[in-house]
Amino acid sequence: MTDITARLDALPGLDPRAPLLQVNDLHVEFRTRDGVARAVNGVDLWLNPGETLAVVGESGCGKSVTAQAIMGILDTPPAHVTGGEVLYRGVDLLRLPETDRRGVRANRIAMIFQDALSALNPVYTVGFQLAELFRVHRGTSRREAKRRAVELLDQVRIPDARRRVDDYPHQFSGGMRQRVMIAMALALDPEVLIADEPTTALDVTVQAQIMSLLAELQRQRDMGLILITHDMGVVADVADRIAVMYAGKVVEEAPVHDLYAHPGHAYTKALLESIPRLDFKGQPLSVIRGLPPALTDLPSGCAFHPRCAYAREICRLEPPPAYRIAPQRITSCHFVREVLGV
């Protein structure tokens, strides 16, 4: 049905000149038996076409929940988006009717996950699952849909695509499966791709293949890419900008070179120092003491203060404001000067 695309082009408030994707003050909480877990507490992000934004942080920092909120695939209950907006070209996706939201999800913003095996339906061939997308969203004929499925598998470098299109997901290796999922995500030419830990389950040599494939596809399509990961190494290789999350907040956002060279938040700095390096042996790793906070019971003030080497009284009492320390750099740390060493 081509009218899906037509409808998406006529969304009220759609402004082609507006930023591709912009998240403002997003709040998400999980209401569970054990209390309210505040998973996302005021996240701001933006993304331009052709740009790679990496969202990094440890488990429980809210990076995946943010992605799911952008996609509109959170399970409610227990998850509730309690505030903020997700603007796609000026249209707030959070206020869109469900049918339009679904359309945006497949056609404009797509997502790939860590676990490709469970994201693909085991009882259908990958060709059928790909063709289904064209048939449902584009009204393509069976034949044409199949042809485009082969073409897509070819694009994600699956060898012998013409034959493999009739294979089932379990017949693909981990890396090939991830390629199939990328093909599914890109089938309808989205403008934004969100990749949630896309290579975490893969071996390093395969990871390198997948990351270079993603980079290449992104270049070809001038697509905006949000890469969600915990791996500071992968990020250093591919990202343009990085948003570091801690306890449901973006604590620092910076162009990739600045972030690694001069981290502007105590957490970023400590995180970078605690990673073992491939390129030199190094002495005892410096350690971030303690544990990430429980989301049901966040510390007062700056959520990182109980683990922070720079923390003083003010960190416990007041949440740090967002300081703009350079044109594209924002950091929320009371002691940004000390951390930067200026």
């Binding site: 390093v204 040599t205 990871q207 390198a208 791996d231 500071m232 190494g233 992968v234 990020v235 250093a236 290789d237 990202a239 990739v256 070179h257 690694y260 060279a261 970078l272 990673i275 390096r277 491939l278 390129d279």
Partner: peptide
């Protein structure tokens, strides 16, 4: 294997 391991240093890109 070694060459495929990402290093957390964007200057090495």
């Amino acid at each position: 294997l070694l060459s495929a391991v990402p290093v957390p240093d964007p200057r090495l890109r």
